[in-house]
Design a protein around this nucleic acid. Structure first.
Lengths: 188, 188
DNA sequence: GACAATCCGGAGACAGTCTCCGTATTGTTT
DNA sequence: AAACAATACGGAGACTGTCTCCGGATTGTC
């Protein structure tokens, strides 16, 4: 869901416009310069004041979460498809690669996500929750099919995939496939 | 070598005193607050002005490298011992764990080190060079002994160990053993 | 004791984060 | 359509951290 939220009342028209536009600009900025890029600069590029940006997105993580929600929806769709796959092993492989690459969407995103998992209620963490539960489900199926070691915890696996995303990004690899193959060679 | 360097002439006495004291204070500060802690604050705690700190250590990486050099010497000593071990497989295991834990010495150190490997001549990278060559040697021996897959590149392995250090630190694990076991289960 | 060479320190320029509140816009009511 | 309340805007500016510059202090040498 790429929802915009409507708690009590809907947003005022101008607010909604700014909200959407900020997300759009933020996406470009993150793509170009990574998630650590200046927020005031994003506000400026979006033609709004810093105050407006911070009101809509009180923290950097809020903005990252919003910018990510589109591609997250796609990933969730993939997860559902894979859960219906008749080859749990291949499904898990495909999932891990897709997940690793998604965690690399922006420069320095793996750090932000990993960090968000340490703080109680980060919006980024909440946004990523479907990813962990999908991982859990696919791990369970793979274990039942006997193509994954029984002692592999899905949280450990998620951490492993995150770290692969981090390492491959830091090395400047074009995707996470190479590191992932190395890191997951022994989980079967 | 925890050398202080003496290019043409030795340092003036007061300069040497400050230099050493800054390293000492930096070590504590990094231990307490991670490598991202304020440098001006370190200067202040060391009783010198910012200018003095930046003259001795033009970049954060310089200071990190200096603060790390002590424990690095120990690691190098371990590497030499392990290269003489009669069990190359166990030696590599022990090395990877020691390396992973060393890369975790300070909070956020894995990021700094990984980053330094991307920039041409970071002092931190140069400081860590002995670690990569020791890894190379131990990997070679393990391959010859047939306890390591032939297609494992030592650079990939170093990256893998780095990422394990990163992930285990981010998770707040007390050491890197658990993640390392998972990540390296399939390299044999 | 004096004179170079070396080194110190802190003021301050700069960049990024984030807030506060006077002003402007919007939607609703009559 | 005019007026009113609710909502949202924006930018000045406080604050923190980085890093530099250079007048003045310290050290080593003759």
């Amino acid at each position: 869901m790429g929802a915009t939220a409507a708690p009590s009342r809907p947003m005022r028209a101008d607010a909604q416009r700014n909200y959407d536009h900020i997300i759009e600009v933020a996406g470009s900025a993150f793509t170009e310069h990574g998630v650590l890029t200046s927020l005031d600069d994003i506000a400026c590029r979006a033609g709004v004041g810093p105050g407006t940006l911070y009101r809509h997105f009180p923290t950097r993580d809020c903005l990252i979460a919003a910018a990510l929600s589109g591609s997250l929806d796609q990933l969730e769709a993939l997860a559902e498809r894979l859960q219906a796959s008749d080859d749990p092993g291949a499904a898990l492989d495909e999932w891990m690669l897709a997940l690793a690459n998604h965690l690399r969407t922006y420069d320095n995103l793996p750090e932000s996500i990993a960090e968000s998992f340490r703080t109680s209620d980060s919006p980024l963490r909440n946004t990523c929750r479907p990813l962990t539960s999908a991982t859990s489900a696919l791990v369970e199926r793979a274990k039942e099919a006997g193509v994954l070691r029984d002692d592999v915890d899905y949280r450990d696996l998620f951490a492993l995939v995150s770290s692969v995303a981090w390492a491959s990004q830091r090395r400047g690899d074009k995707d996470a496939a190479r590191m992932l193959a190395l890191a997951t060679a022994g989980i079967r």
